[in-house]
Design a protein around this nucleic acid. Structure first.
Lengths: 249, 249
DNA sequence: CATTTGCAACTTGGATACAAGTGTTATAGT
DNA sequence: ACTATAACACTTGTATCCAAGTTGCAAATG
């Protein structure tokens, strides 16, 4: 198995092959009250989802130990949690790597998210209230604000909140957790290739969904939601061939 | 916090409060080739799903170490994995316990499973082939066999295979994994209170789904699938009040 | 007798040492 | 020059030790 062939550019430059494989930007002040495992897990998870850690990057346990100044035990626990979430691959005796973004998994994850959000919409639509509409439009307004500020992370969170509302209105937080789990890979894909030019379109699509709901037009809301979610395929289609290839392993 | 009050009956009889909290029936011969973590995880997971380990049972790391004759490290890893799956609760400095079965979680899990399976059905129905029908009916035939043999575990697996086919026909194994994750709590519920009298009904419901698909009746198949899945509520409604109460904590 | 205080036994969280496997590299032999 | 082998650096898996927190009981104290 020639997995060791995966090297960080820095390691190729100088021969040392130290463990600083994309972890440079990360830092973490340990809060002795909370568990070290949770903090390492949260830090790595956020870095992977925000693609500050590139897919395929080697992240050995010891390199993380040195980076965060904790022992291997909480680091191992964090990596195992990330493995469960599909964000890290561990090859025994070889190494641990940030999970690559693969089209096959992307399609399944998109199917899950799509199905669940549509199911939530169908449950919420008949009980749609002006208060719900108001809160959704407030969320959209916030999305416009963070776009104006050019805050990528902010838009990501505002967008997530918008979709979260749908589950909250249905009283199904557990379903939102499932969507969140399916969404991580999609988020990594979007953060990799979504351009800023698309963001105003996202606003329009969100607005179209709420407009349809306000008019008690379930079918219209459903198609609006679907076209919004399926835009990920448009992003994919517009990808240059070279980058598209990377999604097939 | 009075969690220590949760004691196993055996521990209440003799005062020792040893760690043999329902683990008696479990056994495991360690295969030194595979990782100890995986084997402990699989053994515990199976025992919890099959309700051989009662919900609420205390399972301390050390008790499992003594039971399986491994060190705490792989046991800890296995318990953390089970925590991720929602099968075990860990209270630091207090203990680890088999997760209780709660109605709130059951409803969300059922919603997820229902939505995903219906979505799969809608995708498969237009592409329905005689070969698919054949394999489904073979699965049903096997279900009849294991019922005749009175093999509870066998029926569980055959039933699972039936639903798995749906995802396979759609070419979405990843979706099946998600269904599986949502299904564990439902399985524990069914294994706790589903009577053998219902099993022939399950056969009928499965057959009704395939019959509708064979007649290219998507709407009929969908309602048949939904009534089949929603039978879990009927099981719940028929529950004696005392047992029903236990699901509200 | 009632209350409090401290000890003992238990729990999980973290740190560290060792075991075993893998891949590269340098060195010795041909 | 080329090949084979051995040493080395690196990886994750496991075992064990210590730290810190919780609980129950027993003994000491009023």
């Amino acid at each position: 198995m020639s997995l060791r062939a995966i090297k960080t550019p820095a390691a190729e430059e100088k021969g040392t092959l130290l463990g600083k494989a994309g972890l440079e930007g990360l830092d973490l002040v340990l809060d002795r009250q909370r568990s070290a495992t949770d903090q390492v897990h949260a830090a790595l998870r956020q870095a992977i989802i925000a693609v500050r850690l590139a897919p395929g990057s080697p992240i050995s346990e010891n390199s993380i130990c040195r980076r965060f100044d904790v022992s291997r035990t909480p680091v191992r626990a964090a990596l195992q949690r990330l493995t469960e979430e599909g964000l890290v691959y561990v090859y025994p005796q070889i190494g641990s790597f940030v999970a690559p973004i693969r089209l096959a998994g992307l399609q399944d994850n998109h199917f899950i998210r799509r199905s669940l959000e549509v199911a939530l919409l169908r449950e919420v639509a008949p009980r749609w209230t002006p208060d719900m509409s108001l809160r959704m439009r407030q969320s959209i307004a916030q999305q416009k604000q963070v776009i104006a500020k050019g805050d990528g992370d902010g838009f990501y969170h505002a967008d997530e909140e918008f979709h979260h509302h749908l589950a909250s209105f249905a009283g199904r937080e557990g379903v939102w957790q499932a969507i969140l789990a399916a969404k991580v890979q999609l988020s990594r894909f979007q953060r990799s290739w979504q351009t800023k030019e698309r963001l105003p379109d996202v606003i329009r699509e969100h607005t179209a969904i709420i407009d349809a709901l306000d008019q008690h037009d379930l079918a219209g809301a459903e198609t609006a939601l679907l076209t919004h979610l399926d835009m990920i395929f448009v992003i994919f289609a517009r990808l240059p061939e070279a980058q598209r290839q990377s999604l097939f392993e």
